[in-house]
Nucleic acid binder design. Structure first.
Lengths: 341, 341
DNA sequence: TCAAAAGTGTTATCCTTACACCCATGT
DNA sequence: ACATGGGTGTAAGGATAACACTTTTGA
């Protein structure tokens, strides 16, 4: 029981917090990253995968939990991000807690087991992060196969699908082949199935398993990729790209039944601005007229009467979020109308 | 960064895992609980709230993470539950990680900060739990206001609403009053709003905040409830009732877009059996004909041709889950058709 | 004048809801 | 016979998807 937990583990476990801080700028979803300093000390020494290498690898902002100072995880996170990154967080939710062995490679050299509670934070603007070596990165630099706004990403058919087919053929057991085919089809929407935008994590994990991302080779202590092509897409430290994939999947799912998109657009916005924001996160283009009808008739927004000029065409009315929807409907989200293009 | 986390905290944090194991028997949702032994040792001594009192308090099964033996949290959980409770888990997902200060009251007497990663597990049958002082409890014994299958639970109008009204009136600031009114209305579906079945956690937290559950008084080290009535509903140790509320909310939401209900019914079942299972979790009655159409036309089930006799009426066809839906539809769930009665 | 974006209107289709009614079994 | 649950049919209403078309600005 609880007392058992108290007795069992010694000082070999540490708890960290990390934040996936997402904003939208220039119609692109952005995530705040930090560079791990090249001289990051490594406990235990030895070859630590990519950590401590000459290469600079980006990571998600990570902070400690002060066991005696921080009343809750969320307060700790807000404090930490405010202090070190100079960013004030708005909407915050817990994402997932990662605790696999060796997710921090230093564990192999006697480092402690690192448990990270990860949080998703949505903010309105890309405040220029102060302090640290922090920067805003386009989320799709890390997950390029997730951006379908300009048609199906080319990587999928040129790189991923052939590798997946090889993987399926690489076993003789027809039962295993079937299972692989099914996972493949579900994750990437092949065999006539539709591409499920929300399955971001499943796709990343499949690519990791197939060794198509550099993290895979790195984590088994092997820089060499065995001749396997490595997809475009920027590498991250530790399992942070997995965490980012978890975050994007969560956002995509949530946007449909909670009005979280309004955490990320200005107080007032045109309907096209709102649509572009949703498209940036969902990774698909939406049908304009139907999108407008959905948000207007869904009671999500309310016209302000003011107009935005310089929209590139006819001035558009500025809208604002109608907070009352939360009271009226059980699950108010934007909903994605039929795709276009 | 990650290295910061490594350096900061000493042995003052421990990580535990706890499991909300849910099954359905006799049309009731059941959760596996254990009794905390009366002689549970308390680190630091002193008055520990309910822990160590004469009173026996039930808790969720909790196990340690073996930092060097367990490869992942989930494997640790499965191992632990198999070994100590004799239950083999099927579907498992991470729920939430709780880490508030003093969630384990022993922390006040110098005990360590206890971080618990909680998991939701759904299983098919109530295997009689072996070992431990484990038992299956009706979930609604802990959260009686959540069962609306026989009409609106009486506690709501007799106990909860009056207390909530007092709470709203207890401040003079009209702004605060508005905020309270809104939280109240959202959580309990008053003021003409509808009751949102999924907001289980919000309801529990409101009741906790108002001191209507014994845990509230206990956690501030005060056995006396200050004359406040305490609702029906069985107490749990630590914040385990909050965890249970989180779990029920998650199940209710998930059932609508993932076919998780099939983890909890026998391999073959009649449509009424399936409906009763969904009703047990959702806490509402459903419209029979429409429920059937939804699951059949949604491609979720497939007739086996066999019949179940002794149903109480005409023999019913036995159905089974159509695994292929997962391939066909992005978010296959049961969906709750209009209520009846 | 033309491109770009805003905004209006209409129709076919599908899904949900709500009734009404018949069927088969056990007691 | 009748209570209980199984199962079919259908019509009304609402939401969505897909089109076509008009309006208003800036370059």
């Amino acid at each position: 029981m609880e007392s058992r937990a108290l007795a069992s583990d010694g000082p070999r476990i540490v708890v960290g917090l990390n934040a996936v801080i997402v904003a939208i700028t220039d119609e692109q979803p952005r995530v705040l990253t930090v560079s791990l300093p090249e001289d990051t000390p490594i406990e235990g020494g030895g070859k630590p995968g990519a950590i401590g290498d000459r290469r600079v690898v980006e990571a998600l902002p990570t902070g400690p939990l002060d066991a005696e100072g921080d009343r809750t995880f969320e307060l700790a996170l807000r404090r930490w991000v405010r202090t070190y990154a100079g960013v004030e967080l708005g909407y915050v939710e817990q994402l997932y807690t990662f605790g696999d062995r060796f997710r921090d490679p230093r564990e192999r050299q006697g480092g402690p087991r690192v448990v990270s509670a990860s949080y998703l934070a949505l903010i309105r603007e890309t405040q220029p992060a102060s302090g640290l070596a922090a920067r805003w990165r386009n989320v799709y630099q890390f997950l390029p196969w997730e951006d379908g706004r300009n048609g199906r990403p080319r990587v999928i058919d040129t790189e991923i699908v052939p590798e997946l087919r090889d993987w399926i053929a690489a076993t003789d057991d027809p039962g295993v082949q079937e299972l692989r085919k099914e996972r493949f089809a579900i994750a990437f929407g092949l065999e006539g199935l539709q591409w499920d935008r929300d399955r971001v994590l499943e796709r990343y994990e499949l690519l990791y398993e197939l060794g198509l991302v550099p993290e895979a080779a790195r984590d088994i202590g092997d820089e060499d990729l065995g001749g396997k092509s490595v997809l475009g897409g920027r590498e991250m430290a530790f399992d942070h790209r997995r965490i980012l994939a978890t975050a994007l999947g969560r956002i995509r799912a949530k946007i449909k039944y909670r009005p979280v998109i309004f955490e990320m657009v200005p107080e007032t916005f045109t309907l096209l601005q709102l649509q572009r924001a949703v498209e940036a996160l969902a990774g698909v283009r939406l049908h304009k007229q139907n999108f407008r009808r959905l948000v207007e008739r869904g009671g999500l927004v309310e016209g302000t009467g003011k107009l935005a000029t310089h929209t590139g065409g006819r001035p558009a009315e500025l809208f604002e979020f109608r907070r009352e929807v939360i009271l009226e409907r059980p699950a108010p989200g934007v909903g994605l109308p039929g795709l276009k293009r």
